[in-house]
Amino acid sequence: MKPQILHLMPNTTDEKRWVAEITGEDPTFKLKRDFQPDGPEGVWEIYDGWYQIHGQATGVSPFNKEYVHVKNGRMLRHLNFRYVLAHLEDIKAAEP
């Protein structure tokens, strides 16, 4: 499957931008996050999976350390922490 391309500008509150894939369980923070490198500055390739995103995309409400799920190239936004935790087994099963 082809990746979706996400262009992020820095968040207006703290001037940061990042994309972290949720890849499993963490004993301290509950969810293990793998921060993804941006391609050209401010550009990320997003594949199906679970992510935490922080930054501003043109024409879209800001991502403020927001959990999202991408499935079949479509992004479901505004997920709460407990919802993501409830899908931890699915997240772990998707990893090679």
Rank of each mutant, 00 (worst) to 15 (best):
K30D: 11
D26F: 14
Q4R: 13
G59H: 05
E89R: 14
Q52L: 03
D90G: 08
L85H: 00
P37D: 15
D48M: 03
Q52E: 09
Y47A: 00
K65H: 09
I5A: 03
V43Q: 08
E25Q: 11
R33L: 08
H69P: 04
P27R: 04
D48A: 00
A86K: 04
T28S: 14
Q52K: 06
R17T: 06
Y51C: 02
E41R: 06
H7S: 02
R33P: 04
R74P: 02
K71N: 10
T12H: 10
T23I: 06
L76I: 12
G49A: 04
G42A: 11
L31H: 00
T58Y: 06
P27N: 07
N80F: 13
R74F: 01
N64P: 13
G42T: 01
A86L: 11
L6F: 06
L85R: 02
Q56L: 08
E89S: 09
R33E: 14
K30Y: 08
N72S: 03
G49T: 01
M9I: 06
Q52I: 09
H78D: 10
G39S: 15
Q52Y: 14
E15I: 00
K92T: 03
I91W: 05
V70S: 03
L88G: 02
K2W: 13
W50M: 04
I91S: 10
Y51K: 09
Y47K: 02
G73R: 00
R82H: 06
L8S: 09
H69R: 08
E15M: 04
W50G: 01
